[in-house]
Design a protein around this nucleic acid. Structure first.
Lengths: 354, 354
DNA sequence: CTGAAAGCGCTTACAG
DNA sequence: CTGAAAGCGCTTACAG
């Protein structure tokens, strides 16, 4: 009969008969308008009234219904964040700074891994759309077409890209200057006397992978070194596959004396693999990483790497999105954060013979 | 004037004038009731009509408004998951299996780190309540009072606990049998001939910390070894603090020959620290971890550890919550998953002298 | 098989 | 400073 009539079970009730604005209003002999205003600290409501209302809300265990509010205002207070994998410390560190920034602006943030699965990413974007999310921070899955970004934008879901960017997406993106950064690592190894330098990890399918490889190739050329295809072991992007790649590396004929890795995770895996084979990274073979995750400094040997500005990427991406929520126009540029070389033990403490 | 009148801008419009059920209904000369039913595949709607409706929805770029639906049905399709830190692979692995399980049931899951900050956890629970979330999977922050759990439960937000449990919370929890598991590791070291065994990491403030310590102490006693307070280095719970603890360990007088660590992360950090000091873990000193995270098998030396059933914890916790969403009663028990010892290199390949 | 109407719990002009 | 009323976009009995 009265299916929805959860109803006002009386005035000062401390029980859970679903307290809503009207419950409080009734109890106090006020209107829901006044209660609504008071709870949001509107100066329109007299101080005394406001306090009475807040007190009653507290006592009655009132819970604000954000769905209802959001349906009315079309603001949800939600920002979606979707990356390849939050377990990867590289993303973890970016997320931490996004979280800080969003927290400060009282936005709820919803996290999602797409594992480079386009369908999973789409379903997340869809969910954000359906929830009326206020914005989306995305590190796009491999193969994301610009249309996927525009779908969101066209439906009033502002998007900011991080770590990876997409040609023609028409939205702002923040990432490190990967080509430059990888150049730094390779230059460093060349300066230490290496002439045969391998690169392990990364794929052609992300901007990150392409740019880091380009930086590697450019630096070799700069150093007057002719690249040999067998030096390039594509693929690995995590610790495990880095570990596996170590044995492939060891089988390369006229074996390189140094390895630049796609990421710290890959480098750490490679170092585990080399040690397993009885080689001492930083001694028998120079190894560099990329990202400067927390672990790089305590790894043994400590890892020479390229600091990639994760927290700056996160902070600025969140900042840019918040700007847009305040009505700013979408920028279309990709903003490159300048990376920095961190020299530690894994690249060797002395010159190598090559 | 007509602030909310986004309105039906005409029939077959492909433009973004906010398409809603009524837009589709108008375009097709049907009622919103029929459209709503059709879009959710109700057999009440004739096949042909259903197809026409779906086609129109697709063409017009209709986006389902979940807030509106959820306001009406008081089902949101959202499950919140809150843990100490998703970057910790231990939680990461649990989350992955929760994610799989929830995905299969088309529940959106919202992730949150509380970093053991009670206020942050509360604000997350609040958000879930306000969003009308369907359920909550929680690894409670240190010091969580049972009342915080009951607040959620009293407001129809079913809670399932993972990894850590809380006395008197009255809800189901899933975690490994920590005391038993730690006993396994210590027994193993004793069997290898160790008589002085330190324990690094963990705190009294979590059930996990207490139980693992209890397991350690019980196993020493079982082995006829008298515990010495200087063997117990409390505190470390991540890689970095494990690394730092290594030097404290080295300063212990009459130094132990073996270390059981609170977690793999701590053990991995300890091993980095020992190596840094020129000691070879698994050779000069035996080390064990706890959790059997992915990295344990590829670490060098590979890490002897206790498999803690992360994916089983995640899967069963999600399963139990889904059961409750289907109307099952809340259980009150804590379910212990039986852990398993994984013997690898770090505990030594031969007997030690003690 | 389809439609008219009420209602989920808020917020927002508008009046007073 | 406070209240009455409309409306956000759905879904759900109920009628036909």
């Amino acid at each position: 009969m009265q299916e929805g009539a959860a109803g006002n079970a009386g005035s000062g009730l401390r029980v859970a008969q679903k307290v809503k604005l009207s419950t409080i209003a009734d109890a106090l002999g006020l209107s829901t308008a006044t209660v609504s205003l008071a709870l949001r600290d509107s100066p329109l409501v007299a101080e005394v009234t406001r306090e009475r209302i807040k007190e009653e809300a507290r006592l009655s265990g009132y819970i604000y219904n954000r769905r209802a509010a959001s349906l009315r205002t079309s603001r949800s207070g939600i920002v979606g964040v979707c990356v390849h994998d939050v377990m990867n410390p590289f993303f973890g560190e970016i997320l931490k700074s996004i979280e800080d920034e969003l927290d400060r602006h009282r936005q709820t943030f919803i996290l999602c891994n797409h594992y480079d699965d386009l369908a999973k990413q789409r379903s997340f974007v869809d969910t954000m759309l359906q929830l009326g999310s206020d914005g989306l921070i995305l590190s796009p899955a491999i193969g994301t077409p610009p249309a996927d970004i525009r779908l969101a934008e066209d439906n009033e879901l502002p998007v900011t890209l991080i770590a990876r960017t997409i040609e023609g997406s028409g939205v702002t993106g923040f990432r490190g200057d990967d080509a430059y950064g990888m150049g730094l690592a390779v230059d460093h190894l060349i300066a230490r006397g290496h002439r045969r330098i391998a690169m392990i990890g990364g794929t052609q399918f992300t901007s990150t992978g392409r740019d880091r490889e380009a930086g590697y190739l450019a630096a070799l050329k700069r150093g007057g070194i002719e690249f040999r295809p067998q030096w390039r072991l594509e693929g690995p992007r995590d610790r495990h596959s880095g570990f596996d790649a170590a044995s492939q590396f060891l089988a390369i004929e006229d074996r390189p004396t140094a390895i630049v890795c796609f990421s710290d995770l890959v480098a750490l895996g490679v170092m585990y693999g080399l040690s397993r084979a009885g080689l001492r990274p930083g001694h028998d073979i120079a190894v560099t990483g990329y990202d400067d995750i927390d672990e790089a400094a305590i790894a043994t040997p400590s890892l020479t790497t390229v600091a990639n500005g994760q927290s700056e990427v996160g902070r600025r991406a969140a900042g840019a999105l918040l700007e847009r929520l305040r009505g700013a126009e979408a920028g279309e540029e990709t903003i490159l954060i300048t990376p920095e070389l961190k020299i530690r033990q894994s690249s060797g403490h002395r010159d190598f013979d090559s």
